[in-house]
């Protein structure tokens, strides 16, 4: 419960717009195109339009209950500023997209997911479009809730980004975070074993920060060298 209190102190000076406004204005990310976009406030009418819901209204009732429950848990854990949207695809599979108001709300939100019996499925770090201009990066934590996928997204500064480790809560976050640390310039605070995982020690740190220019640090020249030989061989033959 103390988490709920701590989380509401989002730094208002830094982000003059509320998170909901930023999401809606497309400043945080492009809104997903979807079959059905469902907000936590207006669930029932949107859901009952679904195609192929096998158990009809009963299932809709359960779904609505489920969505309300998850939304309530997230808002309680991460604060009123939390934005959550649901999409349901043609087969009725639910995905929830939840934007956390600040980095500090990640831990309590993750704990709340654990209480809902969520299973950590994947962690995606990325440099969003126009992230450089805005000085922002994002990390998305994808959880499985018995077939539905809930994604918690935190927005972090591009420089000196830090997130708390979720490995103490979800043991299988271990490798996900080790990988994130070696591929991106993000510090995972409190990780029990922050060694490199896949990257060879001879490779530079954080290759995913360096999408452009590419050739300065990879052997992209290989392709050119090979093709020069192919084309040279051809001229010889001709």
């Amino acid at each position: 419960m103390s988490d709920c209190i701590k989380l509401t102190n989002d730094d208002p000076g830094k982000n003059p717009l509320s998170l909901r406004e930023r999401v809606a204005a497309g400043r945080v990310r492009a809104l997903p195109r979807s079959e059905e976009l469902v907000t936590a406030d207006a669930l029932t009418p949107a859901l009952s339009r679904g195609e192929r819901v096998p158990e009809g209204e009963v299932r809709d009732g359960i779904l609505t209950g489920f969505i309300t429950k998850v939304a309530a848990a997230m808002t309680c854990a991460a604060g009123e500023e939390t934005v959550i949207e649901w999409r349901r695809d043609r087969k009725g599979v639910l995905t929830g997209w939840c934007w956390l108001p600040c980095g500090e709300s990640l831990l309590p939100a993750a704990r709340a997911v654990a209480e809902l019996k969520g299973r950590l499925a994947m962690v995606t770090a990325y440099l969003p479009e126009r992230g450089k201009e805005k000085g922002e990066r994002e990390i998305a934590y994808h959880f499985d809730l018995d077939g539905a996928t809930l994604t918690l997204t935190v927005i972090l500064p591009l420089q000196w980004a830090r997130v708390p480790s979720l490995t103490p809560i979800f043991r299988n976050c271990d490798w996900q975070e080790r990988e994130l640390m070696e591929l991106y310039d993000v510090q995972v605070v409190g990780h029990p074993d922050p060694r490199r995982l896949f990257l060879d020690h001879s490779l530079p740190h954080a290759p995913f920060e360096r999408l452009v220019p590419y050739s300065t640090f990879t052997n992209a020249a290989t392709g050119k060298a090979l093709w020069d030989k192919v084309l040279a061989g051809e001229r010889e033959d001709a």
């Binding site: 492009a30 809104l31 997903p32 499925a121 994947m122 994808h142 499985d144 996928t149 994604t151």
Partner: peptide
């Protein structure tokens, strides 16, 4: 522009 999640049951289990 957009984002999506897709899942399937690969031979070894859940793929996302």
């Amino acid at each position: 522009a957009g984002e999506a999640i897709a899942k399937s049951e690969a031979p070894r289990g859940e793929l996302m």
